[in-house]
Design a protein around this nucleic acid. Structure first.
Length: 574
DNA sequence: GCCGTTTTCGGCCCGACTGTTTTCAGTCG
């Protein structure tokens, strides 16, 4: 069974956890974590790379030693260092380290002094008041651990989808704005980087003489618990168990603080290193030469001081953006206003809520030039998938409505199912009468990787195949992607002249950012579609654009920045 | 364990907050 990059990253992170509990050199531990992160973010499969005798040491954070260890993991499926560590350190300790407030040092102490090696034992020790007597611990710490354990018990700590985070952020930002003296307020962090899910919200605030801002914040009616509260930084847990941090800085530090709190952590570390080389110190208050602040008011000013152009938040993941910036080769990222239409939408012909005409008028109102109605095909019976006669009826209706629309066209589309054997769910002669065929998988998710990949590539052989919809089928936090070899699929799409969808629905966001970048590098155009089932879903486009930007896509890489006419040319098969 | 315009040793991002201890270690982001 081939080992995935995320498996290798998990093994390295697990190793780092155990090394940390063992009290190893912190820099050695960091090296394992850095390498794990590098691998996690790689678009290419490490297993494949090794089988082709590729050199892992060309990636940052992987040296000779770790390259050898990674090879061991890939080739043997096990890792001797980790196995040895496990012999000395009970398995349960890595769960303890996941308890917020417990780090490696405290876990090691709890284990050493009280022989506690699992969550259940920890709970018992907390209940009987044994923790408070340990040196360096106390009543308060014990209580915090107790609360954390209760929280872990009732809730799986999942990351929150960006759309949900937005719904939480909006009223909170509105509330914060009512504080006296408040000036600027920005939701920074991974939310600003438009990551598909976020762990918490980082809200950055500037204000004049605003001594009461933190009181105002912690008084918010949705606050369940105040985790910490200081003059410049406070953290709370909302009733939904969602964490929000607020940081206050002065106007003169706003740009530096924005860079700092937007992250990512890895990006920040990388730019600080550049700063150090230039004898600067970068922190959230500015860029400093000695004790003198030489930049900090705006983000551009901060980047400029270390000889970099402004880097868009979505790129700040230390995935090559700094090198690109140094070489003046940053992409000019696609924007919502570049989009000229939506190619994946549903109508009341199947499981959509609105009529074709309502969908079209809503799209026109958004400033689009076209919309494709692409309802389900017959195999998806639960959604009332269209039979051939239904498709013919829909074609006629679209022609009729198109006659009434000025400066806008409804494209005839279909979301046609890819059957288990790779055939499409409707006859070719009918599919040929449509403008756009979006092809997707809605059943048999659990085929082997090889079979699933072959199924899709076989479907692409059909010249009617235009776009592969939601290519991995994942639903964030709900359903894993089906097992496919994405690199093979992207290459097949390139070879056969097919396009890939980036489904903008916030539950899907599929392709993910890494796959978007892969498509761009291989030279396959991406279509950002909303999969709208009602008119207001058309607004999901903004989430798709965020993901596309994270995947380094420019307008040129996104097919639906083109006119309908240009699109038809793109769909022409070789 | 990684890395190099301070190149093969000696560094490794930086600061806030908490709780415990009394000047700071641990944790987090």
């Amino acid at each position: 069974m081939p080992i995935h990059n995320s498996d290798i990253a998990d093994i390295l992170n697990h190793t780092a956890d155990l090394l940390e509990i063992q009290g190893e050199n912190p820099f050695r531990i960091r090296a394992y974590r850095n390498a794990a992160r590098t691998i996690q973010n790689l678009s290419k499969s490490v297993a494949e790379l090794i089988s082709e005798n590729g050199d892992l040491t060309k990636y940052s954070g992987i040296g000779k030693d770790l390259a050898g260890k990674i090879e061991e993991i890939v080739k043997s499926g096990s890792f001797r260092l980790l196995d040895d560590l496990k012999k000395n350190i009970p398995e349960g300790l890595s769960q303890l380290i996941d308890v917020s407030g417990l780090g490696a040092k405290r876990v090691a102490k709890i284990y050493k002094e009280l022989k506690i090696s699992g969550l259940d034992q920890l709970k018992k020790a907390v209940d009987s008041g044994k923790i408070r007597d340990l040196e360096g611990f106390g009543k308060k710490t014990e209580q915090n651990i107790k609360e954390e354990l209760e929280r872990l018990g009732k809730e799986q700590t999942k990351r929150t989808k960006i759309a949900t985070a937005g719904q939480i952020a909006a009223p909170l930002v509105k509330y914060l704005k009512r504080a006296k003296g408040i000036k600027d307020i920005t939701v920074a962090g991974s939310y600003r980087r438009r990551k598909e899910t976020v762990r918490d919200l980082d809200i950055l605030v500037t204000c004049n003489r605003c001594s009461n801002i933190m009181d105002h914040f912690t008084d918010y009616e949705d606050v369940q618990k105040v985790i910490s509260k200081g003059k410049t930084r406070s953290s709370v847990l909302l009733r939904s168990d969602f964490q929000v941090d607020v940081r206050v800085v002065q106007q003169v530090s706003y740009g530096a603080a924005m860079v700092y709190f937007t992250g990512s952590k890895e990006h920040n570390i990388a730019i600080r290193k550049i700063g150090i080389k230039k004898k600067y110190k970068l922190n959230e208050y500015g860029v400093f030469k000695g004790k003198k602040r030489v930049a900090g008011k705006t983000e551009s000013e901060v980047y400029k001081k270390i000889n970099l152009p402004y880097i868009e938040p979505e790129l700040r993941e230390n995935r090559g953006e700094i090198k690109a910036a140094q070489n003046n080769r940053l992409p000019k990222l696609v924007e919502r206003d570049d989009i000229k239409g939506d190619l994946h939408t549903h109508s009341s012909y199947t499981d959509g809520r609105n009529t074709i005409e309502q969908m079209a008028r809503a799209a026109k109102k958004m400033g689009y030039q076209y919309i494709a109605i692409s309802d389900h095909s017959q195999h998806v019976t639960v959604a009332g998938g269209l039979k051939p006669k239904d498709v013919r009826k829909q074609i006629k209706e679209i022609d009729k409505i198109n006659d009434t629309l000025k400066g806008f066209i409804i494209l005839k589309g279909i979301e046609v199912d890819i059957l288990e054997d790779g055939r499409l769910d409707l006859p070719d002669d009918l599919l040929k009468q449509l403008h756009v065929r979006i092809c997707s998988i809605h059943y048999k998710f659990n085929l082997s990787k090889q079979k699933q990949t072959e199924r899709i590539i076989r479907a692409m052989d059909n010249p009617c195949f235009n776009i592969l919809a939601h290519p991995t089928g994942r639903l964030i936090n709900e359903r894993y992607p089906y097992d496919v070899d994405m690199e093979k699929i992207v290459k097949a799409a390139k070879e056969k002249g097919c396009l890939l969808e980036l489904n903008a629905h916030p539950d899907r966001l599929d392709l993910n950012d890494i796959h978007c970048k892969m498509a761009k590098e291989i030279g396959v155009k991406v279509v950002v579609n909303t999969d709208a089932h009602q008119t207001d879903h058309l607004n999901y486009m903004r989430f798709g654009i965020g993901q596309a930007r994270r995947g380094w896509l420019e307008a040129e890489d996104v097919a639906n920045t083109k006119s309908a006419k240009q699109l038809m040319k793109l769909f022409k098969r070789k």
